[in-house]
Nucleic acid binder design. Structure first.
Length: 435
RNA sequence: GGCGCCAUCGUCUAGUGGUCCAGGACAUCAGGUUCUCAUCCUGAAAAUCGCGGGUUCAAGUCCCGCUGGCGCCGCCA
C-alpha cells in the first residue's frame, strides 16, 4: 500500500518554525517510503482565518523545498484540499452518523455521541508505545458547528480517510483528542491510520511554541539570512537524531536513514545560537561560487550586488548568516564615519605625525600595490617608529574603515583601490586634526 | 480538578541491564595560530542520569510511587 502523509496547517497566522518542523518529517517520511506528501488546509475556523497566511504556508514549503504531490493550489485526485470547499462532504458523513443514531442536536450544532465504556488505545510511532485512554473521559463532542462548518475533530478524520492517509504525523497536543478520532473511525467502520505524535517544540519559557510566546515566523529566518539547508539540518536535530550521531547531514541523507525509532519523545527547545553555528558551517563549507550566488540573491538594493566575487573569500569565515555581510563590509561601499574614541583606543603617542608618515608611504608606494609589498612597507615603518605591528595595522584599518574590526586589511584595500585608500587616510587625518 | 505526554551537562542529544565514576555537539572559559575579527587547532569546566522505593549478581537503562514541566478537557486547531 502506498504511504500517504499530510501536512494539515490551519491558515490562522504566519506559519512558525514548528510548522516547518512538522513538514520536514512529513516530507522525509513520504520520501523514505516512496510515498506521497499532501498539503491540506484546515480552514474551518472562519473567525480566525487569515488569507495572507495561506500564501505564507506555500512560500515556506517552497523555500525549504518540501514540494507536495497534492494540495490546494495544485490539485489531486482527492481534492479539493481546502476544507472550506468540502462542506458538502462533511454534511453527508454527518448525516450517515445521524442515521446510525450516533449524533445529537445541540443548539444548531451536531454532536457525536461517544462511547463511554471501555477504553481506546493505539500504538504510537513516536516512542514506539501504546497509549490508552479510558473512554469515560471522552465527552460528546461537536462535529458540525452551528455555522455548518465541521470541527477539526470531524473534518480531520473524514479527510484523512477519504484522502487515504496512511500515517498521521502531527503534534503531541493532539494526543488527547486522538481517542475521539478513533471512535469516529470505528463508527464509520474505517481502518484508522497509524499515528506518530511528535514532541512539541517549546519556547524559552518551555511552553509550546506559538506566536504569542514569541515564536518567529518561518519566513523570518529566510529574511535573517539563514540557509534552507541549515534550517532543515537544525530542525532534524530537534527531537530526532541521526543513527550515527552525526550533527551535519543533508536532507537526502536524512531520508536514507530516517526512522521513527530515532525520536526522543520529550519536548525540545529551539536554540537559535546553535542554528547560527550550523548556518556558519554551511556557509564555510559552500563553494565561493555558490556563496556568491546566495548572497547576491539575498541582498536587495545593496551597492555590492553584482560585485561580490572578490569579497566572498574575505567574508566567508566571518559571517554566520548572510545578513552579517552588511555590517561587516559596509565601509567598502560607502565612506566611513570616524569616531574620536576609536582612534584614541589605538594608544599611539602622536597620532597626527604617525598618519602623516603613513600617507607619505602610501603616496611613495609604486602602483599597483600588492599585498605582500604593502605589508612589508608598513611592518618596516612600525619598526622605525617604535610602535607594534598590530598598532600600525590597526591605525590603517581605522583610517580606511572607521572600525576596529574588518575583513583582512590588505585585501580590503585592494578592493577599495589605491586612490580611495589614500583619500580615506587623508580624510581621517583631517578628522583627527579637527576634532 | 480529570485525563494524557514527558523527565540525562545551561541548550540539542547519545544511551534500549554490565564495555557509563555517562559520550558527542552548541554555548562558556583558557591557550595556540594571526594585521583586527573570524576561521582553524588544543585543552578545561559542565549531568550525584528530577526524587524515593523496588526487581536484579548488576539500573541512566525495567517496575511502582512522588514531584515537576507541558498538553488537552472550546460550536480553536
Amino acid at each position: 500500500m502506498e504511504v500517504r502523509v499530510r501536512l494539515a496547517p490551519s491558515p490562522t497566522g504566519s506559519p512558525h518554525i514548528g510548522t516547518a518542523w512538522q513538514a520536514l518529517f512529513d516530507y522525509v517520511f513520504a520520501k523514505k517510503m516512496s510515498g506521497k506528501f499532501i498539503l491540506r488546509l484546515e480552514d474551518t475556523d472562519q473567525a480566525r482565518y487569515v488569507p495572507e497566511s495561506e500564501k505564507e504556508i506555500y512560500e515556506t514549503l517552497k523555500w525549504l523545498g518540501f514540494e507536495y504531490d497534492e494540495g490546494p493550489n495544485i490539485g489531486g485526485q482527492f481534492g479539493p484540499y481546502k476544507q472550506s470547499e468540502r462542506l458538502e462532504i462533511y454534511k453527508k458523513y454527518a448525516e450517515e452518523l445521524k442515521e446510525k443514531n450516533l449524533t445529537l442536536e445541540d443548539e444548531g450544532a451536531i454532536r457525536f455521541k461517544t462511547k463511554k465504556i471501555g477504553e481506546t488505545k493505539w500504538h504510537d510511532l513516536v516512542g514506539d508505545k501504546d497509549i490508552i485512554f479510558p473512554n469515560n473521559t471522552q465527552e460528546d463532542f461537536v462535529i458540525i458547528k452551528s455555522d455548518s462548518y465541521p470541527t477539526y475533530n470531524f473534518a480531520n478524520v473524514v479527510d484523512d480517510h477519504l484522502m487515504e492517509i496512511t500515517h498521521v504525523i502531527r503534534g503531541n497536543e493532539f494526543i488527547s483528542s486522538t481517542p475521539k478520532h478513533l471512535m469516529l473511525y470505528q463508527a464509520f467502520g474505517w481502518t484508522p491510520p497509524q499515528f506518530a505524535h511528535l514532541p512539541v517544540l517549546v519556547g524559552a519559557d518551555r511552553a509550546k511554541l506559538s506566536k504569542r510566546h514569541g515564536a518567529k515566523g518561518a519566513l523570518e529566518y529566510k529574511k535573517d539570512g539563514y540557509l534552507k539547508e541549515a534550517i532543515i539540518n537544525f530542525l532534524a536535530l530537534l527531537g530526532w537524531s541521526h543513527p550515527e550521531e552525526k550533527e551535519i547531514f543533508s536532507l537526502e541523507e536524512m531520508i536514507k536513514v530516517f526512522d521513527f525509532k530515532q525520536f526522543n519523545p520529550s519536548s525540545a527547545f529551539f536554540d537559535e545560537t546553535k542554528l547560527e553555528w550550523l548556518n556558519g558551517e554551511y556557509i564555510r563549507n559552500m563553494s565561493n561560487e555558490e556563496l556568491e550566488k546566495r548572497l547576491d540573491d539575498f541582498l536587495v538594493d545593496h551597492p555590492a550586488k553584482g560585485k561580490l566575487k572578490s569579497v566572498i573569500p574575505l567574508v566567508k569565515d566571518r559571517i554566520k548568516k548572510l545578513s552579517d555581510f552588511v555590517p561587516l563590509t559596509d565601509f567598502l561601499w560607502e565612506s566611513p564615519e570616524y569616531d574620536r574614541e576609536i582612534f584614541e583606543s589605538l594608544k599611539i603617542q602622536d597620532l597626527r605625525l604617525m598618519m602623516d608618515k603613513v600617507i607619505q608611504e602610501l603616496e611613495n608606494m609604486q602602483k599597483p600595490w600588492n599585498a605582500k609589498n604593502f605589508e612589508q612597507v608598513f611592518r618596516k615603518l612600525a619598526e622605525q617608529e617604535k610602535i607594534s605591528v598590530t598598532q600600525m595595522f590597526q591605525l590603517l584599518r581605522v583610517a580606511i574603515s572607521g572600525q576596529l574590526v574588518t575583513p583582512p586589511l590588505f585585501e580590503s584595500i585592494q578592493i577599495l583601490k589605491e586612490e580611495e585608500t589614500i583619500n580615506r587616510v587623508k580624510e581621517a587625518i583631517g578628522f583627527v586634526t579637527s576634532s
